[in-house]
Computed example of a mutant assay.
Amino acid sequence: MRRRSLALAVAAGGLGAATNTARAQEPWPVRVVRLVVPQAPGSPIEIPTRIIGDRLSRSLGASFIIDNRPGAGGGIGSQHVAQQPADGSVFLATSAGIAIVPTLQPALNFDPIRDLDPVSLMCDVPSGLLVRNASPFASLAQLLAHARVRPGDLTYASGGVGSANHLAGALFAALAGVEMTHVPYRGVSQAVNAVYAGDVSLIFGSTLELLQHVRQGQARILGVTMPERVPALPEVPAIAEQVPGYAAPNWFCLMAPKGLPERLLNRLNAEMAVIRDAPDLQARMAEGAATARLDGPGPLAARLADEVPKWRKVVADAGIRPD
């Protein structure tokens, strides 16, 4: 009897292991997964999104594709995802701008904490105050001195009203006590090109996209938006060194329609935990002075809880209105 019980126990254990293996290898519930980017094509969010999407396509057996849905400072694409079924067929790949949408786009009746489930932060991305190489400003101190003598003369580009780079500029002007003119474009790529063409004075942009241009001698970064200097750019001062209290860190994240089944959320995060150490992702993040996260829903939920009220105050104080 003891031998028979032992044999049954071993068999049951083997069956359990086989069942777990089968579950681990179950196909993703849909064949095509849309990663909605609420910005125009060419935005820096697409850099980590494409790398992560390609890896997930291979490991989960579904095609993860980017679906650009710009408009309303990211509100159009974000609201679209919130209205989709929570079946693993669609996710939102967005930036820190998601924390601005509920304040600046009240007509959408959208709130990321209420209407979406956090999946994970993708990466932390410093932003920099960038000017073209032919700019007369060689330092942040020079730029600030000019702004104080000639109020409103400096212009700053953004990917649209309410975008993360718009709010970074508005916060800078408020804390520095200067006036700058905001010039919105239909996407970050157009805004950056306007800086290089000399149409506008500067932009607050993601280092993931901008550093390659700096290294090519097209532009220079006068300061970073993180509270302190970035280890990858030790020679570039933090803006807070000239403007005390300034901090506008950028970050990219993945969110899902409300009610994503826990088994899908857990499986997705297990796969992304492996991707976090992938050489191609690590190399691309390092190249852009960014830090890969892919650390699950908890840190993203905490980030949103902090950022939504912060940017609500910035929007109110600056009197920013939607287009």
Rank of each mutant, 00 (worst) to 15 (best):
V119H: 09
V125S: 08
A24S: 13
N269F: 03
W311M: 10
R220M: 04
A22N: 06
G160V: 14
P322S: 09
D115W: 07
I113D: 02
R31G: 00
L222G: 00
A147H: 05
V161R: 08
V236T: 08
K310Q: 14
Y196R: 13
V10M: 04
T181S: 09
P44W: 13
G75P: 01
A82G: 08
D124Q: 12
A290L: 04
A40M: 08
F110W: 12
N250E: 15
M1H: 15
G288T: 05
Q83S: 11
N250V: 06
H213K: 15
L15H: 12
E179K: 13
V308C: 03
R50N: 03
T207F: 06
A93I: 01
Q242Y: 03
G162M: 14
A173M: 11
G205Y: 15
A286C: 07
V90D: 07
G97T: 13
P112F: 00
V200R: 11
A302T: 01
W251I: 04
R215I: 05
L254P: 01
P112K: 05
E26K: 12
V274I: 12
A99F: 08
R148L: 05
R58D: 12
S127M: 15
M226L: 14
L208I: 03
L129K: 06
V36G: 05
Q218Y: 14
F137I: 12
G205M: 13
R2W: 14
F110R: 05
P309N: 12
A11H: 10
A316S: 11
I52E: 12
A219R: 12
A12V: 10
V36Y: 01
Y185T: 11
I100L: 00
E262P: 02
L268T: 00
E26L: 15
P29N: 01
A318H: 06
G169W: 13
A138C: 11
Y185D: 08
W28Y: 04
R23F: 15
Y185F: 12
V37T: 15
A170V: 07
L143N: 08
A134I: 15
R321S: 14
K313S: 10
H146C: 06
P126C: 15
P136N: 09
R303V: 00
D117R: 01
S189A: 15
A289Y: 00
L304M: 07
S95K: 04
M272H: 04
A302Y: 09
G177E: 07
A170N: 01
D323P: 07
A174P: 08
G152V: 01
G298A: 15
L254A: 03
G319Y: 08
L144S: 02
R186T: 13
W311V: 10
V36Q: 10
A147Y: 07
D199A: 10
D317E: 14
P70G: 00
P234V: 09
E179G: 00
V243A: 13
T94Y: 05
V101A: 03
L175E: 11
L108S: 05
A86H: 00
A86Q: 01
G61F: 12
I51L: 09
S189F: 15
P44K: 13
P261Y: 05
R263W: 10
R312A: 06
A134G: 14
G160K: 06
D317G: 13
G205H: 13
P102F: 02
N266M: 12
D295W: 02
I66E: 09
D115E: 06
A176L: 06
R229N: 12
R3V: 05
E179A: 05
V200Y: 15
R267N: 03
